[in-house]
Amino acid sequence: MKVNGVEIEETFAEAFPMYATRVLITAKDYKWAEIAGLEATGFGSSIIMSPAESGIEKFVPPEKTPDKRPGVLIQVFQKSYPELRQQVIARLSQCILTAPTTRAFDGLPPVKRKMRIGNVIAMFGDGYQRKVKMFGRTMWVVPVMEGEFMIEETIAVIKGVAGGNVFILAENMDAGLEAATRAVKAIHKYVTGAITPFPGGIVRSGSKPGSMRYPKLIATTNHKYCPTLREVAPDSEIPEGVKSVYEIVINGLTVKAVTKAMGVAIKAALKAPGIVKITAGNFGGKLGPYKIYLTEALKAVEDIVF
């Protein structure tokens, strides 16, 4: 398929289920909400080496948060339930508890499966903590030097979707980066329920699982899409004229959110000049239960105009 003269490959992104959670962090103003959110989602790029995959999803206006203060939604992904719980406890206690003026709420109240997190972190109160009903939630109040920190007792855990992706093949680095930046911006603007866990939402070093040379490595460079290996690697998939490739990795709470995010990303990237081709990464469909076709993704965002 060709849109605006850019080829969109007939392929799909392969996604996996992964344990996920969403936490709503509110603060006195957007500035502190953002700082807390950024801190809590730090070092959360890829599960290959990071302790979790995490990212900021969205800012939430005061009227939509339980305590009527500006907030930020973050998501954390992990392979197993206990590891996710460990990560959420670590991140909330080290990054949110410590950040000025913040409070932490469950970001998915209707979900039935909950992790008990608040009561664990509230032990920081050393016996002075107390449980209250407030904002329509069960909250733990922890006395801290600033005043009081509040955290919801339970936080939802679901099977999220990880591994949605879009490859942007560009004429040069600047064009590629511009397109990728626009794509990430659009995801944040138009999509709810999806995050882009990598730095600035963009991956410049996409990887393939395993190694052809070093048996113990879990992941190595995706040599098929390295422009400098076009002549070297026999299975290179770089078309002529491509000098740079960026990947946007998308995790989300539902397949729909990830699909939508991929569609928005493609649409936004197409608007940028100097793009040669859009494609996606998969492992032949053998590993992941979710196949998200690029064409379907585009169809899902037909009604979004920008």
Partner: peptide, 10 residues
């Protein structure tokens, strides 16, 4: 299954 409307902002 996580319902799509649950994801909409709380």
């Amino acid at each position: 299954e996580v319902k799509d409307e649950w994801v909409e902002i709380v």
